[in-house]
Design a protein around this nucleic acid. Sequence first.
RNA 1: GCCCCUAUAGCUCAGGGGAUAGAGCGUCGCUCUCCGGAGGCGAAAGCGCAGGUUCGAAUCCUGCUAGGGGCACCA
Length: 552
Amino acid sequence: MTPADLSAAIVRILAELQADGRLGEGALPAEVVVERPKNRDHGDWATNVAMQLAGKFGMKPRAFAELLSTELSKVAGVEKVDIAGPGFINLTLSAAAAGELAKAIVEAGDAFGLGTDLAGVKLNLEFVSANPTGPIHMGGTRWAAVGDSLARIFEAQGADVTREYYFNDHGAQIDRFARSLLARAKGQDAPEDGYGGAYIQEIADRVLAETAIDVLNLPEAEAQEFFRSNGVELMFQEIRESLHDFGVDFDVYFHENSLYESKAVERAIERLRELGHIFEAEGAIWLRSTTFGDDRDRVIIKSDGDAAYIAGDIAYYLDKRERGFDQCIYMLGADHHGYVPRMLALCAAFGDEPGKNLEILIGQMVNLVRDGEPVRMSKRAGTVVTMEDLVSVVGVDAARYALARSSIDSQLNIDLEQLQKKTNDNPVFYVQYAFARTKQVAKNAASLGVDHSEFDPSLLSHETESELLAKLTEFPRVIAQAAEFREPHRVARYIEEVAGTYHRWYDQCRVTPLSGAAVESVHRTRLWLNDAAGVVLNNGLRLLGVSAPERM
RNA sequence: GCCCCUAUAGCUCAGGGGAUAGAGCGUCGCUCUCCGGAGGCGAAAGCGCAGGUUCGAAUCCUGCUAGGGGCACCA
């Protein structure tokens, strides 16, 4: 008996009441809210349905609640029904009805928590997409952690997810990158508008070391092109390795340049021209994006004949749609939020539905601080902290967890000193420790002859057992909501609660008998609950891309 | 000037209309005679300001204040 079961039971009862005339005519909801009350005195579960619906049926909330509670008390597994306050209906389940879940979770194992909300949806999730002009910074690192988790959560809801990285290897910033490499290779300072940092020297050296050609004596343009193509490739490899070490592997690394080489840009513009959204003015080619809510029209092909950045976006979006993606989700940093209207406009210009076929998630900046001051610690990148810097200090698990446990709408301040000095303080260890404890308990149980041969859920009657069962029940809903709202941090916060609830239960209820005492049904039954908690912690950590070590 | 995000405990952050606003860390107490004390229990401590909507607002709306990020024929 779960809150979802109770919700369904209430919906069914309402329909029956209406059918036999005890409830007036009116639309009934498809589901009702059944929540864990904050105050345990209010029972195991509570619903506000009476307050929500009474008005629609011309009744007072408490009268509505009376009508409903009479029928609810007849439902198997429901031990007690109370009406409280303005019309809350508080439900108490029998221990047996609540406890069944422990076994169900263990038997479901890795599959516990999975849903079907996104079954059959072909979804493209683009994230990180850092320019290949340097190592991945903290912004990209946050996206790597959040994006990969979100992909896992979508998959847990049945979506067919493609993780995609848009590799901006075309345009002016690449030229600046190439000029910077060339300058450093010649022992000169980086150009005014170029890139600094020790990594430029490293890449330049590697380009020279990996070729037999006397690059530095080539004509300037040829030398720059040589550094461009080889430097970008080296940077690309390095980014891919950093991401892989971070536990993030993309299905598709899409090269912007390929859109130009394949003439996809021209085709996309032609398509928009046919749709009547292109015009020419001042020697440039424009997208009339104001038709679709943008605050100004956008230049696609500049008057000098070069493509503006949005040209690639247009072709890229069309390409994604032609590859069969129903939903294209872009994750961008706050510094790109000005892009949202034009991206949604180009989606609409193709006749698609903005917000559905194309959706943009904006994430706020992340800062590393020490004593309240921004940290600039990277030896390689000079002024910024890279993904590798962070991982080298706190490790992958702590880094991913710290970045994924907060809403992307919040700017994040991560205190490096704290994570550096005492990594035990990181919440990820609290969760991992709880999981390790479930494993240790199971191991001890096995050695003392406590096995899974018995399961009597009515024995799970301790207050902490009720709490733990209720918490574990929520997992499927947490995943569904994390997917719906695109908020992986919900999973992190949830497993922290599970860990706390588990610890409290552990403190009160022994799985193994005291020395000399006999193994009883209650021990065997509790082993199921212990293992159920382990399943949920493990599944939750997996959704975040964080390891679940059996011992720490 | 316009746009986006944020403002909750000493710190980092949850809380998406419900009952007494939570967690981790930090501070101060208590708790190892039995499954890992990296745990548990308790205490002190908080919704930026002003209106509005609602039976009910941290949550929705408006204004203000403060912080961050944006407003190119750059990418």
